[in-house]
């Protein structure tokens, strides 16, 4: 792709999300989502091989249907109430439709099937964009319409996505699919808290974005497409193995790391609201996720796989990918737990 076109497409990708986030009228929110979808399609199919074309087609079909559903729910709401504002209350069928459409855009559990396939078909950088930047626009719509969406549907979807994210990732060997299922599980936790306390939702979204950035950047640097590829990370950079281990455990939500903050606060809030059975099931399902994160850390940092004499000299070469950008997200995704009272607004 020519750099000029790439710049135009990337700036439109950013503009679409920003239009959606700043809009007050449902039509403009839809226009932002459409611009966003149109701009990511050529980025997904950059490589022009069958898998990337297929991923782009699947992404296009699901996202076009979901944004049409969003606009339809807001339009029927405008028919009934006469109001096009995003923050105004929604009438009876519209809020269920809107909940389903936003869940489809995000990839929550009953509507998640497109996410692992699209991520598997695109490059590692595109997968990184899809799991991080593309989640911001629907999440901001959820944040704006928080009072009007269906709480029970969101609680059910959250539980289901954390279970599906845990179970689906167990059988995968491709790191991109593992990251897709991890994204589904994290979005499940966010969906659960979204209809109860939105400041925890925003904090969870930020921490999820930073942790996913850190893990994806380390996967990009070590060029790890499968679990097998992560076994030779130590030959590239011994420091990277430590960063990957801690970031993955943070993504799994182990206590001294940053990933524990949202899980801790969501559990505390849901127990306060007497959702005891739900939150214990979600905590159990996060153990499933933790299992495949642990498997990745095991092959990355805890074992020395069989190798030849030459492999261990790989670190002497100068790395051809920039390692600078991993510093901040890795630091934040490892050490932020003591700052919890400051970042919880």
């Amino acid at each position: 792709m020519s750099p000029t076109i790439y710049m135009i497409i990337l700036s439109t990708l950013a503009t679409g999300t920003i239009i959606t986030m700043t809009s007050y009228h449902w039509l403009m929110a839809w226009v932002g989502l459409e611009l966003n979808t149109l701009a990511i399609i050529p980025i997904i199919s950059t490589m022009h091989h069958p898998r990337s074309t297929e991923a782009a087609t699947k992404y296009f079909l699901t996202q076009a249907a979901a944004s049409a559903l969003i606009l339809f729910s807001s339009m029927t709401n405008a028919w009934n109430t006469g109001s096009w504002d995003i923050t105004q209350p929604l009438t009876s069928p519209s809020h269920i439709l809107l909940t389903m459409a936003l869940a489809m855009k995000l990839g929550l559990a009953p509507l998640h099937f497109w996410l692992p396939e699209v991520i598997q078909g695109s490059t590692m950088t595109t997968a990184f964009i899809i799991t991080t930047w593309q989640k911001i626009a629907p999440m901001s719509l959820i944040f704006l319409t928080m009072n009007n969406l269906s709480t029970s549907v969101f609680l059910l979807m959250g539980l289901l996505s954390s279970l599906v994210g845990g179970w689906g990732g167990l059988n995968q060997t491709q790191t991109r699919k593992i990251m897709a299922y991890s994204s589904i599980a994290h979005l499940g936790w966010m969906a659960t808290i979204s209809s109860i306390m939105t400041n925890i939702l925003i904090m969870n979204l930020l921490i999820y974005l930073i942790m996913t950035t850190s893990v994806f950047l380390s996967l990009i640097i070590s060029k790890s497409k499968t679990i097998q590829d992560t076994t030779s990370t130590w030959t590239l950079s011994p420091t990277l193995t430590i960063i990957m281990l801690l970031s993955l455990l943070s993504l799994g939500g182990l206590p001294p790391l940053t990933g524990f903050i949202p899980k801790w606060l969501i559990m505390e809030e849901l127990i306060l609201q007497n959702f005891n059975l739900l939150i214990s099931m979600m905590a159990m399902s996060s153990l499933l996720s933790l299992y495949f994160y642990l498997r990745l850390t095991y092959t990355t940092a805890l074992t020395l796989s069989p190798n030849t004499t030459q492999t261990k000299f790989k670190w002497r070469f100068y790395p051809n990918t920039s390692t600078m950008f991993i510093i901040t997200p890795a630091t934040i995704s490892i050490f932020l737990l003591p700052m919890t009272p400051l970042i919880l607004l």
Binding site: H49, R51, E54, A55, V118
Partner: peptide, 25 residues
């Protein structure tokens, strides 16, 4: 969508949705 149709017809040979099965788990 039509551009994706053309791209799919080029890479997969036809536009049957059954053929979009390369990425399944």
């Amino acid at each position: 969508g039509l551009a994706l149709l053309v791209a799919t017809a080029r890479t997969h040979g036809n536009d049957h949705l059954q053929n979009l099965n390369l990425l399944q788990c």
